[in-house]
């Protein structure tokens, strides 16, 4: 599936084109309502951010979109196709990739192998083809993997174990692994958490580059307001599992409920 062939059509009633559409999604854990009828639409090649205080359901939303959780209500549409409840590996096959809040790399494998694993959906995986010494796929794929590492600036670390990388490099490797799958949509879960200010600037640039240069749609969960406000085109604000505001950075910044729920509380703390 080439990543550059979006099959998006006009969504009825919206008048626009959107690559990802979440309609009234809800999920509960025991008695806790983690998400309650959350809806959002993301346009192709947008940089869409989801913010909200801790425990507001941002990561839960990602887990639903990427197939790790099955929602109790609502549906997720990707390119107009219903992907609600698809297992994660099939969601990835459609072109939606994600990173993890608590970095989730293949820590005992090399940096290059992590990226090679990321190519899974694009690559030749038939056992006989992989084992018999025909074709030059494997060498070609390794070359492609090195190019992905090059993009995030890790090409010199290819043979190190992923678990031995510094925190910031691990975050970048997660992005390289995602890129290897030639995604249409990337869900980035707090990609700048735990980074120092200069690393954060680098990460922001990298994320913007994904949208501008690679034409990938990015949905971002982030706590750092300077990052979010600096690069987002549209922001959705969650609190206690509900959408309390959405719109441009300006609109969200001045929204009274947002100030109360999120920014206000940070000021008071």
């Amino acid at each position: 599936m080439p990543a550059t062939a979006p099959r998006s059509g006009p969504i009825p009633g919206r008048g626009g084109v959107c690559v990802l559409q979440v309609n009234g999604v809800g999920i509960t854990f025991g008695g806790l309502v983690a998400l309650d009828s959350v809806s959002l639409e993301v346009r192709p090649q947008a940089l869409f951010s989801v913010i909200g205080p801790n425990g507001s359901g941002k990561t839960t939303l990602f887990n639903i979109i990427s197939g790790f959780y099955r929602p109790r209500a609502g549906q997720v549409l990707f390119d107009g196709n219903d992907i609600t409840g698809l297992p994660p590996h099939l969601v990835a096959r459609r072109g939606i990739y994600r990173t993890f809040q608590n970095i989730n790399l293949f820590a005992n494998m090399t940096v290059l192998e992590n990226v090679l694993a990321g190519q899974h959906c694009q690559a030749e995986t038939r056992l006989a083809r992989c084992i018999l010494p025909f074709g030059r796929n494997w060498a070609f794929e390794q070359q492609e993997a090195r190019e992905c590492l090059d993009r995030v600036g890790l090409h010199t670390r290819a043979s190190e174990l992923a678990g031995n990388l510094s925190y910031g490099d691990q975050r970048r490797l997660e992005i390289a692994r995602v890129l290897a799958g030639k995604p249409q949509l990337i869900l980035l879960d707090e990609p700048t958490a735990g980074l120092n200010p200069s690393e954060k600037t680098g990460a922001s640039k990298l994320i913007q580059g994904l949208v501008k240069d690679l034409k990938i749609t990015v949905v971002l969960v982030e706590h750092d307001m300077s990052v979010v406000m600096g690069i987002s085109e549209e922001i959705l604000v969650l609190n206690h599992g509900r959408v309390i505001a959405r719109g441009s950075t300006e609109e969200v910044r001045n929204h009274p409920q947002v100030i109360e729920a999120y920014l206000g509380r940070r000021k008071g703390a």
Binding site: F68, H89, A92, Y97, R98, A117, H120, R177
Partner: peptide, 9 residues
């Protein structure tokens, strides 16, 4: 978890 996230069944 990471394996499934990159499309590995």
């Amino acid at each position: 978890v990471a394996a499934r996230s990159v499309g590995i069944n």
